[in-house]
Every structure is written in structure tokens, then in C-alpha cells.
Amino acid sequence: MISIKNVKKIYPSKDGPVTAVDDVNLAIENGEIFGVIGYSGAGKSTLIRMLNGLEIPTEGSIVVAGREMSKIGGSELRQARQEISMIFQHFNLLWSRTVRDNIAFPLEIAGVPKKERLKRVKELVNLVGLEGRENSYPSQLSGGQKQRVGIARALANNPKVLLCDEATSALDPQTTDSILELLVDINKRLGLTIVLITHEMHVIRKICHRVAVMEGGRVVESGPVLNVFKNPQQAITKRFVQQVTEPEETKETIKHLLSLYPEGQVIQLSFVGEGAEQPLISNLIRNHPLMVNILQGKISQTQNGSYGTLFIHLDGEKAQIDEAIAYIRSFEVGVEVIKND
């Protein structure tokens, strides 16, 4: 559906050229939810804007739904943009128009007759769950409702691709989840390809099939979300993964526990998919003469399976502990010994 090949974007600036996107290669499949994660300034915004021609790459080629976006212009580009719609962090609704007229705007642009427009708007309002708010103005809506209008507006012309530019970053956690569920629902129901950029790993975990991590304009890591969670390669990816697998206070709790139990070992187990479903701990206790103390655990759901972390404290003879760790390693479970330092 989308192919990005050797794409570079260089902006001129007073202090010399700035490379916002540096030699990015990605292929995004039809019907996939693809996430791009990175901190601000990583180039993800520029990258997503090149997908609908709001930015033109300095080098390389971008093909979306069979169209080479960097080469087309004028009416062909406008036509293409009706098939590649976009939703925004700050919603970007027209405050002078009601919900109904905001959703009708892309239909007006596409030249749909008024009667059909009203019919289509009604369908869209139902799809995003905004029945009864058609005559409200954006200023009378909550953030989540505004984004629903944004989504309805983006879907009006039956696009093939939906680009989400930090679509949930201005929303509270609960609203974020409801918008993400709506996106998954749309993806399944309409088979729409979704590309989203975010700085929240939570968003990636919740709805993406595959993810690319960007840093300094480059894609430093990419792959199926579960694999990236299981086995993050880059330091930045590990930091993002920690955002969802470790609650914030974990580090302090562990430190506290380490000082509380100077004996034995604290280890972190990471389970992926089926690994999470085996009675590992009871086997461990049964087979090894050790004290096993469960400190903290968390399971996260991703679009391609579940992922969990568990912190346990093992106390007993040194040889027994080493044996136990080796035993755990024999399953498909990641083990990390946490040292007191």
C-alpha cells in the first residue's frame, strides 16, 4: 500500500541544512496499522506529511496506493489526498461550522451533491458515535468528541489510508483508549490502512501491528510490535518499551526491596505470548529448594499477543539460585538479574 524508499528530507536553515528525515525505507502493507514512534524532533511528523504530499521529499520515492506522491501535483495530488486522509493532534476542525458541516467539508471538496452529503454525514456520525451532536459547534465538544469529528471527517471520502498525526496526544488516558478502540474498529470494519505517529508506547502496544522507531531522522528499529517488545535492540527502544512494561515507581520499589533483602537475587522475567501461559513459578518452587517472593508483575496486550513482566526475589543457596535461573532460561522467558548497585 505504501512504499517509502531512500527518503531524505533536508530543510535549509540559517545554521546550514537540517536533515529531518534521513534515508528512511519502509513498506506498509494493505490493511495494516503501522506505528512510528519517536521523541519530538525525531522526524516522524515530517515523514507522515510526506505521505500525503504536504511535504515533498528532497530525495527518494514515496508511493502510496499506486501513486508516486513526490512526482504528482495539481489536481492529481488533490485527487490522491482524498484517498489519503489525516487526523491531527489538535483536531483542526473549523470552529465556524457545526459537527455536521465539518464532516461534510471533505465531501464538498470532492463535489458530492448536497443530498448525498447529508446521507453520508449521517452514516459517519453513527460510525463514530456522535448521534445527537450534529448541530453542535466544536467549541461545545470535549476533546474526545472533537477527535471523533476529525475521524468522521477523515473517513468521509472512503479513503484507502488514514494518517494519524499524534491523534491521541492531546487527550486524557481514558479518552485515548476509546479513540484507539475506534481506530481498531475502523481498521477491521473498513480494512483501512492506518499509519500513526506518536511518542507514547501505550498507543503502539494497544493498536499497532508493526512499529518503526525513529531517532534523529532515521528508523533505528522496526518489526512486529510483539517482537520489538520481546527483544528491543536499541537503547531508545528499550526506553519506549519500559514506558508500558514498567510502572513508574518500579525502579524505586526494586531499590527498596534490594535494600530490604540483601540476600538472594532479584530477577526480572519477561514473558511473551505462550510463555505467559505456563505454570513457571509453581514448577520453580516445586523443583528448587528456594524462597520465591513475587514483587511485582504486569501484563500488556498487543495486537499480536500478550506481553508480561514479573519481578521476583529468590532466596537460598547461591548454587540453587543459579540453577533456578538456568531452569527459567530453558523456557521461552527472558531473564534479567537485577544487581544492587
Binding site: 504536504l54 495530488l77 489526498r81 489525516m86 491531527f88 467539508f105 471533505p106 471538496i109 471527517r153
Partner: peptide, 9 residues
């Protein structure tokens, strides 16, 4: 920007 992204002239 949103209007441009919708293909508006």
C-alpha cells in the same frame, strides 16, 4: 493544513 490534506483547492 487540514484543508490541504483533504485535497482542497
Amino acid at each position: 493544513e487540514a484543508s490541504r490534506s483533504m485535497g482542497a483547492k
